[in-house]
Design a protein around this nucleic acid. Structure first.
Lengths: 154, 154
DNA sequence: CAATACTTGACTAACTTGGTCGAGATTCTA
DNA sequence: TAGAATCTCGACCAAGTTAGTCAAGTATTG
């Protein structure tokens, strides 16, 4: 279970916007530079995040992006499921209901699906428990530990 | 979170071998037919499962495959992690230890990794709780519900 | 008007996935 | 011992996905 590059970049970008959350807008260029993301690629991603209702944009010379909602209101599960596609696939065919007339391969697939459904629930459970705000706090902690670098001098 | 076709076929094949677990050996051809898996592709997969220590093979005219261990001793997590690659990626760089001298993109990736690590643990947790034997039982249940098909006659 | 920044969609190179194929090695049976 | 059945090994291939680039356009500000 690994995020695609696209997915990781998306969360990184939202993290930056989350940290700087406010009425002002932040330029693609700055996010790209700070997070070391290819600029043109990030354009695509932010555009996509806009369609997904995660960010707003402003065009023109003082343009840029900001979050559409506050970081507390954005679940990591939403972001990732939007960018990477739904984790909880809605197939659920032959699960829990009538399992009649299944060929033996279908029966096997069905048995496997049973546990994969649990796996997906577990994933979503973890991701739903984390907001963008939580991630921002975590980032602050990590950066906090950088503010007091170990003193190796005598 | 979805199994690759390869992964699903692998579990299906092991399920068949699990159901028929015993000293005798089962032919690729039969597994392929029963589970509707492309024969040549299944050859690859079973060969791979052999390298992974999941199955034994016998060559020659009465050849075939059987499980290397009993179904109770095979965890679903082992199978899937072997076929699909490790879920619990061992990177864990910058996790829990010294987070000094991280560039801001590294700090962000680190924060993200923190929660992805939880996700992976959750996945492995579910998969470790299921043995091949459990899956076989589940399959029996599903097939059991086929033995008494609904009677639509008057 | 010029500069800046987002917008849109086409394009591409590299990689992965799902699968096929041929030739060989091994083993059983007649 | 020949031949048939079966696994073994590695090359090959088509289609799809991923990561990323590019060009031309639109909107906004100074």
């Amino acid at each position: 279970m690994k995020l695609s590059q696209r997915g990781e970049y998306a969360v990184q970008a939202l993290l930056v916007l989350g940290i700087c959350y406010g009425p002002e807008v932040i330029r693609i260029k700055d996010i790209a530079k700070q997070q070391n993301i290819p600029r043109r690629f990030l354009e695509q991603i932010l555009n996509d995040l806009k369609s997904g209702g995660f960010v707003q944009s402003r065009r023109g010379v003082a343009g840029g992006y900001r979050l559409e909602r506050s970081p507390e209101q954005i679940l990591l599960s939403e972001i990732i499921q939007y960018i990477e596609g739904p984790i909880e696939s809605i197939d659920s065919s032959n699960v829990g209901g009538n399992n009649h007339n299944l060929h033996s391969d279908e029966a096997a697939k069905c048995a496997i699906n049973f546990v994969m459904k649990d796996v997906r629930s577990a994933i979503v459970g973890v991701l739903e428990s984390v907001t963008l705000s939580d991630l921002c706090k975590r980032l602050h902690e990590i950066q906090g530990s950088m503010e007091n670098p170990p003193d190796y001098s005598i």
